[in-house]
Design a protein around this nucleic acid. Structure first.
Length: 283
DNA sequence: TGCCCCCTGCAG
DNA sequence: CTGCAGGGGGCA
């Protein structure tokens, strides 16, 4: 489900709710959803939260980190004890928790609870120490954070060049090229750049890489601004849906008119994934 | 680089 | 019923 903007939205709505609280008990409802020994995190205070690519991290006082990857259908939902009395938005919108999709439950010392839900069971929570954070191959090979200093068009171009014969939209999904871009924002970035998603990296000009860089940054920033994309599962840590898809140029808009020129948006398959674009605005 | 796979559920 | 879904690992 979540790409960079969705995970960042979760992080922002979660942090203030759990910082300084102590994890009293972790209940693992689905074994494959939690890697590590829960008791190493129990009794530990939450120091901070962070996001890396599409992952959410919760740093604990004993130097361990709870690292979440939500994959396609993961949710991280906080339910505060006080708000629960008299109706909590989470409960109102999502029904009683835990539910059928709840895989891990984190209980805090003040009676509040954090649920890790994941319908498809692709996601995971890993209890990592410093060493494992610095040796995990996926983590150490991630590309640059697109919303941080240092991400410029030349870097994007140079990283994309390892996929010269790959369609640009497919190449953008490689997390070692740029971290955090997923299927929704890859289509959006190509639209903003005016580049046909089928174009091969090797044929793009510098002028197009400049526009592509702009597309990546703008689409992700817009995603955060609108609280993420709630096509099916996504909600923030307090149970609210995001409205980015109402503002998306092409994703999910096949057969609807292009917001810029009115031409019908087209849906094709690239690298096995649904891909949306405007054949008039993108070439 | 291009499948197939990990799962569950929903739309067509 | 088949196909499809915000991801990514493993295999040739």
């Amino acid at each position: 489900m979540p790409e960079l903007p969705e995970v960042e939205t979760i992080r922002r709505t979660l942090e203030g709710n759990i910082i300084g609280k102590t994890i009293t008990k972790i209940e693992v409802l689905n074994l494959k959803s939690f890697h590590g020994e829960p008791f190493h995190a129990e009794g530990q205070k939450v120091l901070k939260t962070f996001r890396k690519a599409k992952m959410l991290g919760i740093s604990l006082a004993n130097d361990l980190t709870l690292l979440f990857h939500l994959k396609m259908s993961g949710q991280v939902i906080y339910q505060g004890e006080k708000k629960f009395v008299g109706g909590h938005p989470t409960t109102d919108m999502l029904g009683q928790m835990p539910n059928k999709s709840t895989r891990v439950v984190f209980n805090f010392n003040d009676g509040s609870v954090l649920f890790f839900n994941d319908q498809r069971k692709f996601g995971w929570v890993k209890l990592m120490n410093k060493e494992s954070l610095n040796s995990d191959r996926f983590l150490t090979n991630l590309g640059p954070e697109p919303l941080e200093e240092g991400f410029n068009w030349q870097l994007l171009r140079d990283n994309l060049y390892k996929h010269k014969k790959t369609p640009v939209k497919v190449a953008l999904l490689d997390q070692t090229v740029v971290a955090g871009v997923g299927n929704i924002y890859a289509s959006e970035a190509c639209f903003i750049a005016g580049v046909d998603p089928k174009r091969l990296i090797g044929e793009l000009t510098d002028r197009e890489f400049i526009k592509l860089h702009k597309g990546v940054v703008e689409s992700l920033e817009s995603g955060i601004k609108y609280g993420g994309s709630s096509k099916t599962h996504f909600v923030d840590a307090e149970g609210r849906k995001g409205v980015f898809l109402d503002f998306a140029y092409v994703y999910g808009r096949d057969k609807s008119p292009c917001k810029k020129c009115g031409t019908g948006v087209i849906k094709i398959k690239l690298g096995g994934r649904g891909t949306y674009y405007c054949s008039s605005c993108q070439s």
